[in-house]
């Protein structure tokens, strides 16, 4: 026998009737407290119990659109158990109702996000990047270079004779590192970005005149080209675009509709994850370049030299932080030395 008091709404008008409800094991007997209305006997199996939520009132939907509401949550929970309704939401409700499980959910959430960001998203991004048709990569790269040419890059002023040898050596380089793809090396002058080189997904590598002028030898430039070729081979460009959208989606999903107010707050974790991914790709490309240089018998010396020279000229650049896209130059140089040191001696001849 379960008894409780509540309010009855017939679903036709907004009038509230105070009622007492008695459940005899089969049927709910609903009786008006002040008068004869309502007087209903309804089998429990015809009732739908609304899922529990926090400490709010419970309601029972009766056949024909009527409803019974009560703050006696214990009584309704007992009825709910008898009907077997809301098993799933009842479980969620039990999780929500205790601080212990809520804190557990928080820990689980942090763990899930960590796993997604470190393993899930990079894994998916890699799968997607390798299935992108070459035409799409070509199209994206063409648009990117058109934009860059309009805004930041000027035609190269280098003497073609000076770069002819480099082009030739680059042919050997990319056919050794990545024989299956097409590559092109072009030069641009850019006072904006200074000594630098970058690769587009289509295999187009752009090197600035400033970088060529800074280099002491073609070997130094080949080290940079090996690094860029590795970016293209491993599809780092596409992967980082996909990963960044993935993180953005994840952050938006977590922050929900709050995103619009605190877009700054939401963009910070995105930026952090983005630079984390980017540094990982840089290290990977450095490794490929270092192994190539060592295999050629040149050692990583030229690579270290050009890296140090590039950063020396950008002393004011404060990007060497958590948010930086490239690892610290010192770390990169150390990484190159470590690779060389781990090689059997003899192969690492300078």
């Amino acid at each position: 026998m379960i008894e409780f008091t509540g309010v009855y709404f017939d679903g036709k008008t907004s009038r509230a009737y105070a009622v007492s409800v008695v459940f005899d094991g089969r049927t709910l007997h609903i009786r008006g407290v002040e008068g004869d209305y309502p007087a209903l006997d309804i089998p429990l199996e015809d009732c739908t119990i609304t899922p529990p939520l926090g400490n709010t009132m419970r309601s029972i939907q009766l056949p024909g659109g009527a409803q019974c509401q009560t703050s006696d949550t214990a009584a309704v929970s007992a009825l709910e158990r008898l009907t077997g309704q809301n098993r799933g939401m009842g479980f969620v409700h039990r999780l929500e109702n205790r601080w212990k499980t809520a804190v557990g959910a928080l820990a689980g959430l942090v763990l899930c996000v960590w796993v997604f960001v470190t393993y899930g998203i990079p894994f998916l991004a890699e799968k997607i990047a390798y299935s992108v048709p070459p035409e799409l990569a070509e199209q994206m790269s063409r648009q990117a270079i058109e934009m860059l040419d309009r805004r930041f890059l000027k035609p190269s002023e280098l003497d073609p004779g000076k770069t002819e040898k480099l082009q030739e050596e680059f042919q050997h380089l990319h056919s050794e590192i990545d024989p299956d793809s097409d590559y092109r090396l072009e030069f641009r002058k850019s006072p904006y970005i200074g000594p630098n080189a970058f690769a587009l997904p289509s295999g187009l590598i752009i090197m600035t005149d400033e970088l060529v002028d800074l280099a002491d030898s073609n070997r130094e430039l080949l080290a940079i080209l090996a690094h860029e070729t590795a970016h293209v081979k491993k599809r780092h460009g596409l992967r980082s675009i996909i990963q960044n959208s993935g993180v953005f989606l994840l952050v938006s999903a977590l922050a929900g509709d709050i995103t619009s107010i605190t877009s700054t707050a939401a963009s910070l974790p995105t930026l952090l994850a983005r630079s984390g991914y980017s540094r990982k790709f840089e290290t990977e490309a450095d490794t490929v370049a270092a192994l190539y240089m060592i295999r050629k018998g040149w050692g990583t010396g030229p690579f270290q030299a050009i890296l140090l020279r590039i950063t020396r000229d950008m002393a004011d650049y404060p990007g060497e932080s958590l948010l930086s896209s490239h690892p610290l130059t010192n770390q990169r140089v150390q990484h190159l030395r470590d690779i060389e040191a781990s090689m059997p001696s003899g192969e690492a001849a300078e």
């Binding site: 939520l53 999780l95 929500e96 205790r98 809520a102 928080l106 999903a253 977590l254």
Partner: peptide, 12 residues
């Protein structure tokens, strides 16, 4: 508590 549990289940 409601928010954290439901967000966790959404991600999961």
């Amino acid at each position: 508590r409601i928010w954290i549990v439901n967000t966790f289940l959404t991600i999961l």
